[in-house]
């Protein structure tokens, strides 16, 4: 067990390194550090100001290998960045100069305020709906449910955003369309619409997938055994089928858990929520490499952590799985 997790952690090292390398290459393929400086300082910046900007932030070093005499080969942009990331020193924002870690701490709260309620509500709704559809399988209700799912899936998330804002905020004026305040009950008002849109956008796909997983289980032999024992429909479904279905469900659910903290790019942007999603998007707009590499780095770490967590949960649900 311990060896298994140690090995998994070691596998994570090349994965994270690869992700960082790719991010680095892609970012600097599009623009040079000099372009970044000009963009941040404005078009009227003097060449000296640009040089200073580059020097202060360490962007005047070569990209990968330092070949100038008297310097070690790894004194370069890429390796300096990697070193500070490994020490979890996220550095300062290239555009505002603020500590990146402070920015992330500030952004995490609004992100979680949206994603956690949306995740819990969405999971609950899709589990109940899909078990119900599996129960009434092949009936008209089931067919209708699947059609509704496909419709929900086919509508792009933008449509949910626009229709939600137009209908609930503008026409009915129940909730504010846009914005965020970090205090008390007003916060809840600002959160409700984004959460609702988030749930609706994910519901169709999840129900369809969960239903397929449960239908796979419904035809297994142990279901017939449970029926032959005299268990009620509800018991067969919510005890026998659910626990077996969990094995497949867990991959999807647990792996997505760490991502809740990263927020949603689209939703946060369209509802003006100052979370980690908007932070990342703003960073790409303003060529803020420090913020971008930090969010990619944290994102990939969280993803690997999610996979590890999935493995742990597997073992707790399915006794047949043992780590070697």
């Amino acid at each position: 067990m311990f060896n298994y997790f140690l090995r998994r952690l070691l596998y994570a090292v090349p994965v994270v390194f690869g992700v960082m390398l790719l991010t680095f290459v892609l970012f600097f393929m599009v623009q040079s550090p000099r372009m970044m400086a000009k963009r941040n300082l404005g078009p009227k910046a003097t060449p000296q100001a640009v040089e200073n900007w580059l020097h202060n932030r360490g962007y005047d070093k070569p990209l990968f290998f330092n070949t100038s005499p008297g310097k070690s080969w790894y004194d370069s942009l890429f390796f300096n960045h990697m070193r500070s990331l490994i020490m979890f020193d996220l550095g300062d924002s290239d555009s505002t100069g603020e500590r990146v870690s402070t920015k992330f701490k500030k952004g995490a709260v609004p992100s979680l305020l949206i994603t956690v309620p949306a995740f819990v509500l969405g999971l609950y709704l899709s589990l109940v709906t899909s078990l119900f559809l599996a129960f009434v399988r092949k009936s008209k209700l089931d067919v209708g449910g699947v059609i509704a799912c496909v419709v929900l899936m086919s509508v792009p998330i933008m449509v949910y955003v626009i229709v939600g804002q137009w209908l609930i905020a503008v026409q009915l004026s129940w909730l504010p369309a846009f914005g965020f305040t970090p205090s008390g009950l007003t916060t809840a008002k600002f959160l409700m619409l984004p959460v609702l849109v988030y749930v609706c956008a994910g519901l169709g796909g999840d129900v369809r997938l969960f239903r397929a997983i449960f239908l796979e289980e419904v035809h297994q032999d142990y279901v017939r055994t449970a029926q032959a024992k005299g268990a009620s429909h509800g018991r067969v479904l919510f005890v026998h089928v659910l626990k077996n279905g969990m094995i497949a469900l867990i991959t999807l659910v647990v792996a997505s858990l760490p991502f809740l903290i990263m927020g949603s790019l689209v939703i946060e942007n369209f509802f003006g929520i100052p979370g980690l999603g908007s932070l990342t998007l703003d960073a790409t707009r303003t060529s803020d490499f420090a913020v971008m590499r930090a969010s990619v780095y944290l994102g990939s770490l969280l993803y690997l952590f999610g996979l590890l967590l999935t493995d742990l949960c597997y073992a707790s649900v399915d006794p047949r799985i043992r780590f070697k």
């Binding site: 297994q220 142990y222 055994t225 026998h240 077996n244 094995i247 399915d318 006794p319 047949r320």
Partner: peptide, 9 residues
């Protein structure tokens, strides 16, 4: 092997 529920003791 398949008639018993695999995830219960």
């Amino acid at each position: 092997s398949t008639s018993l529920n695999p995830v219960f003791r």
